[in-house]
Design a protein around this nucleic acid. Structure first.
Length: 592
RNA sequence: GGUUCCGUAGCUCAGUUGGAUAGAGCAACAGCCUUCUAAGCUGUGGGUCGAGCGUUCGAACCGCUCCGGAAUCACCA
């Protein structure tokens, strides 16, 4: 039951009974602030024009009417223009029973919509870093949130596996690698390839320096540097499917994929389908033809194809090179077309950094101009960069935070902390590993997901991520605590199903209210594509529970019916914590 | 310069789409474990919500103008 909706409906009925049908005046219901008595509050200011009375008189009049009309509303009080309504005490017990009986709590019924979420989208020339972690966690979490809202979700990864940058690492490996492989070096494949990408850059820079020293302009030196020329030659050979180059490309990409798989697995993310740009980069050319014949695109003297978006406040945009080869936009148009027209997709979510806002603005606009209505169903989930205290991460300056290193660090820190606190005493080695991994990753994931996606966020590698306060481990700990109580109750053979007359303490009502908010939080998270809403909610729930736990004994409660109710409440809190954390891709332990 | 986004406590972040005295965590300080896990709980200090003007019963939130920061405006992806 959506309680605010219920209250809102009740209020609307009473207000209309008093003043006649409402015409656009909004009924504003909000939770009553804790410093006042009541459960829900009506803001009466917008209704003053109808009542033609003072705020206090209006609120009182409406309050009396609601109490008379609505059995669930027991009492009211008025403070200034705010009408605070108190619900019958038994009301919350009924809501609680409803939640406990609902096997699909927080899972909306199927909507019949199919939504594709594209995320990760790495290049195969270097390992994943902190920026990719934010992308992966966001993409995975948003996919789960959309599923919880009843959509069929297809998670996809579009790997950028071709192009000049890939050739750079291939060339450097050929020139300076001496046949090194992941097996021979013991290095993770993506890191090995990344090493040669850096190697290329080193030699490239040296050659530029040499050429400029002998009087060449820097611009020309960049073009004429031998390694760059060789890399470009390699790209041409790749495009001609030269067997030697192609086989090297397949081998080295294979190393990278093996490496990525390890990282994805460690992060707990997965995909239903992986696309490769080597297979999609030719798509979209027919759309270019279509645009030309419709007169929406135009051709320049050098044969390149453009669209003029200056009337829309944008620029002219290249859609196809003069030599007929495609650019980024060409293939994105093509893949979008294929997904919507061929796969009957309803919505397409691109999880891509905000540096590409312009690209997606153009993409949507071009498709719109071509007449494809589904352009409106493309959503660019644009997220902010992760910055270091020194500013942006720069691979050339060695300031990138490597994904594998960071994950390993977090798990190790979790292990040390758990040991210091004696939390792993009596655990098997496997249990200790599992707990350390869960907690370390929980800290990392929550740290990233609790921030509003569109905001630039800061990560300071020198101060390790917290495990206390508003953190993943705090929430996991709350869950483990509850599970511990439930285990003890089971061992003692306590009947948690025991019914009977019970009264609820205010903290219990508070917890039930918070539990009631879960479904609408899941909905809001989907509407805003924001896992951070789930994070804030679960934190709030855990925090309230810890306060309750501190002040009220559960197992030592003497009244058996109350004790059973408290255990049931504990179980529901643990369940919703677990559900919410699952939407963030965070596991919760039974003990820690 | 154009476009988009951001600016809230010393630091990291919330703020339910315009409502009551702007909230958490960290850091600092002071307390709470013979009682269900102290990765917890309680308290104290800390704010011209970047600045100004406007809209109205009411603005951190909406509009305008500044100030400061970021991204982008490539025949890279």
């Amino acid at each position: 039951m959506h309680i605010e909706q219920f209250v809102s409906n009740a209020v609307t009925r009473s207000v209309e009974a008093l003043y006649g049908p409402l015409a656009g005046e909004s009924i504003q219901i909000q939770k009553t602030r804790p410093e006042f008595t009541g459960d829900y509050t009506l803001v009466v200011f917008p209704l003053l024009k109808r009542s033609r009375k003072s705020p206090e008189a209006t609120a009182t009049e409406i309050g009396q009417r609601i109490v008379a009309d609505t059995p669930e509303v027991e009492a009211f009080n008025v403070i200034k223009g705010f009408l605070n309504l108190s619900l019958r005490s038994g009301f919350w017990g009924e809501r609680f029973a409803e939640i406990a009986a609902d096997e699909h709590f927080g899972q909306a019924p199927a909507t019949g919509r199919t939504v594709m979420v594209e995320y990760s989208s790495p290049n195969t020339n270097k390992p994943l870093h902190l920026g990719h972690i934010r992308n992966n966690l966001l993409g995975y979490s948003v996919a789960r949130i959309l599923e919880a809202n009843g959509h069929r979700v297809i998670k996809v990864n579009l790997v950028n596996d071709r192009g000049i940058h890939i050739c750079k690492s291939m060339l450097a490996w050929q020139l300076y690698g001496n046949g090194e492989t992941p097996a021979s070096s013991g290095m993770k494949g993506d890191h090995l390839v990344g090493k040669y990408y850096v190697e290329f850059d080193k030699h490239y820079k040296a050659q530029i320096k040499e050429l400029t020293a002998s009087g060449m302009s820097e611009e020309e030196a960049k073009k004429k540097a031998p390694v760059m020329q060789q890399a470009q030659e390699m790209l041409r050979r790749w495009e001609a499917k030269d067997p030697e180059v192609y086989s090297l490309w397949e081998t080295m990409n294979g190393w990278v994929y093996d490496g990525f798989d390890v990282t994805y697995k460690a992060l707990g993310v997965e995909f239903d389908k992986v696309y490769y740009e080597s297979q999609t980069y030719l798509l979209g050319k027919n759309l270019v033809d279509e645009g030309l014949s419709k007169g929406i695109f135009f051709r320049k003297e050098d044969n390149s194809v453009w669209i003029d978006l200056t009337a829309d406040g944008l620029d002219q945009k290249l859609l196809l090179r003069g030599d007929g080869t495609s650019v980024y936009m060409t293939q994105d148009l093509g893949t979008a077309f294929r997904r919507f027209e061929d796969n009957r997709l309803d919505d397409m979510i691109y999880v891509v950094g905000n540096e590409q806002n312009y690209h997606f603005q153009v993409l949507k606009l071009v498709l719109k101009k071509l007449g494809y209505q589904w352009s409106d169903n493309i959503f660019h989930l644009s997220y902010g960069m992760v910055e270091l205290p020194e500013g942006k991460m720069k691979s050339r300056e060695g300031t990138v935070v490597d994904a594998d290193d960071l994950i390993a660090d977090m798990v190790e820190t979790a292990r040390e902390m758990s040991q210091t606190l004696g939390k792993l005493d009596g655990c098997s080695a496997q249990e200790a590993d599992a707990i350390s991994r869960m907690v370390g990753l929980g800290a990392l994931k929550y740290f990233i997901l609790k921030v509003d996606p569109k905001k630039t966020m800061l990560f300071d590698p020198r101060e390790s991520i917290d495990f206390n306060g508003n953190t993943g481990p705090f929430i996991q700990y709350t869950h483990a605590r509850i599970k511990s109580i439930l285990r003890k109750a089971a061992e003692a053979g306590i009947d948690t199903g025991l019914a009977g007359e019970v009264s609820y303490v205010p903290e219990e009502i508070g917890l039930i209210k918070t539990l009631c908010d879960y479904p609408q939080t899941v909905r809001a998270a989907a509407e805003n594509f924001s896992p951070s809403l789930i994070g804030a909610y679960v934190y709030e729930l855990a925090k309230s529970f810890n306060g309750y736990y501190h002040d009220h004994s559960i197992l030592r409660e003497e009244n058996p019916a109350v004790r059973a109710m408290r255990l049931r409440l504990c179980a529901q809190v643990a369940r919703v914590i677990s559900l919410g954390m699952k939407l963030l891709g965070i596991e919760v332990p039974e003990r820690m």
